[in-house]
C-alpha cells in the first residue's frame, strides 16, 4: 500500500519547512519582478477606462506584440488600404471638375473619410487588429461608394471617342 506523503518523513525539522517556504517566496518574488516597466500603467489604464464606461480594451503587452510578427504586417496592410482608399477618393474627387457631378455630396463624403482616418490614427495604438480592420473596411466602403458614384459619370464620358 502506498503511504501518504506525510508518512515519508516522520521527523520533520522546522528548518526544512522554513527552507521550502523561503523557496516559495523567492519563486513568487521572481514572478512579480518578471513584469515589464509598463505593467502597472496598463492596469491603471484598464481600471480608469472601465470607470469611464469605455469598453476596456486589452492593453497589449509589449513583449507579446514583439513576438507576434504578423501584427505589424497586418497593421501596415490596413494602413496601406486606408491610405489608398483616401488617395483614390481625393483623386476621383478632383476629376469631376470635368463633368461637375454632385460636388457637394462628394465633398461631404470625402471630408468624412478624412476625419475617420484621423480618428483611426489617433487611437491606433489602443485598437486591436479586429477593430482596425472593421474601421478601415468601413472607411474603404465610404470612399468606394464615392469613387463609384463619381466614376460612374466620369469614365464613360472620358472614354467616348466623340469627346476626344
Amino acid at each position: 500500500m502506498t503511504r501518504p506523503f506525510s508518512d515519508h518523513h516522520k521527523v520533520q525539522t522546522p528548518s526544512e519547512l522554513l527552507a521550502i517556504e523561503g523557496g516559495l517566496d523567492a519563486l513568487a518574488s521572481e514572478i512579480r519582478q518578471s513584469v515589464d516597466a509598463g505593467f502597472e500603467d496598463r492596469l491603471v489604464s484598464t481600471a480608469i477606462r472601465s470607470i469611464d464606461g469605455n469598453n476596456p480594451l486589452r492593453i497589449v503587452h509589449p513583449g507579446h506584440e514583439r513576438r507576434t510578427r504578423v501584427m505589424p504586417v497586418l497593421r501596415w496592410g490596413f494602413a496601406s488600404a486606408a491610405v489608398l482608399a483616401i488617395a483614390s477618393a481625393v483623386v476621383v474627387f478632383r476629376q469631376p471638375a470635368i463633368n461637375e457631378p454632385d460636388e457637394a455630396a462628394a465633398t461631404r463624403v470625402s471630408s468624412a473619410a478624412v476625419t475617420e482616418l484621423d480618428e483611426i490614427a489617433a487611437v491606433w495604438d489602443l485598437l486591436d487588429d479586429e477593430s482596425i480592420a472593421s474601421r478601415v473596411s468601413s472607411l474603404h466602403g465610404q470612399t468606394s461608394t464615392l469613387s463609384e458614384s463619381i466614376l460612374g459619370d466620369w469614365v464613360p464620358v472620358s472614354m467616348n471617342e466623340d469627346s476626344m
Binding site: R42, L43, T46, A47, I48, R49, S50, I51, P56, R58, I59
Partner: peptide, 9 residues
C-alpha cells in the same frame, strides 16, 4: 487586467 476592470466597475 480583467480583474482590475471588474473591481473598477
Amino acid at each position: 487586467q480583467s480583474v482590475f476592470a471588474t473591481i473598477a466597475i
